[in-house]
């Protein structure tokens, strides 16, 4: 599952069966019932689930916490191993552009974006960072020109990305949405995490500052 953006996406994947996805585009919410519906569709139950994979962001604090707390609760309920996955990597992997560099761009609000670049859907070319859209050209450097840029941030800041030579699919293209099927695929490759260490990728610190006493 992934809740890093305004969408909620849940998928069920396994060997010898076609992956199935349930999603809500806005508003987001922790919705174990999506998962239950997928399990019912597949004719299995929680005890058949070998592994949970959850998007850790970066993304919206609130959405991520709901998704991660939900994944942790589900994992705790049945002792299921859980793997944390980069939401940016899942986004880029969904673009399915072999041989190309894909830049994942998630709207970070407050005039910033979360951005990372991947080659062949899994090798990290540029690690996740948070930048202002005007700083994308400098941040991406040689990675940007010719790359495919996807995500709600790519839609919002299309002008800046096209100006630096990246290609952005049409606004309504499915490539801009994170699909939990990709979270499943990346989760299958990763190492299960310690439950208590499964936390969002916070690239920004809280606004509060310690006061002098």
């Amino acid at each position: 599952m992934d809740t890093a953006t305004a969408a909620t996406t849940v998928a069920l994947a396994g060997p010898g069966r076609e992956a199935i996805e349930a999603r809500d585009d806005p508003p987001p919410g922790g919705r174990p019932n999506h998962a239950a519906r997928l399990l019912a569709l597949a004719g299995c139950g929680w005890r058949d689930v070998d592994r949970l994979a959850v998007g850790l962001g970066p993304g919206g604090f609130t959405g991520l916490r709901i998704g991660i707390a939900t994944a942790r609760g589900l994992a705790q309920a049945h002792g299921i191993p859980v793997v944390g996955v980069s939401s940016l990597a899942a986004l880029a992997r969904g673009a399915e552009a072999p041989g190309r560099i894909v830049v994942g761009v998630i709207d970070a609000r407050r005039g910033e974006v979360f951005v990372a670049a991947y080659a062949d859907g899994r090798d990290t070319v540029l690690a996740p960072g948070v930048v202002a859209p005007e700083a994308l050209a400098g941040h991406l450097g040689g990675v940007g020109p010719g790359a495919l840029a996807v995500g709600d941030g790519a839609v919002r800041y299309r002008a800046q990305l096209e100006a630096l030579g990246s290609q952005v699919p049409p606004d309504d293209a499915p490539e801009h949405r994170i699909a939990a099927v990709q979270v499943c695929r990346l989760g299958a490759l990763g190492e299960p995490a310690d439950l208590d260490g499964l936390l969002p990728h916070n690239l920004r610190e809280p606004d509060a500052v310690p006061r002098d006493r």
Binding site: G30, R65, G73
Partner: peptide, 18 residues
């Protein structure tokens, strides 16, 4: 709200899974 939702999501997940 941000604090409540962690408990609520956890409880919902435990209840749903069980």
């Amino acid at each position: 709200v941000g604090a409540l939702l962690v408990g609520v999501a956890t409880a919902k997940a435990l209840a749903a899974a069980r």
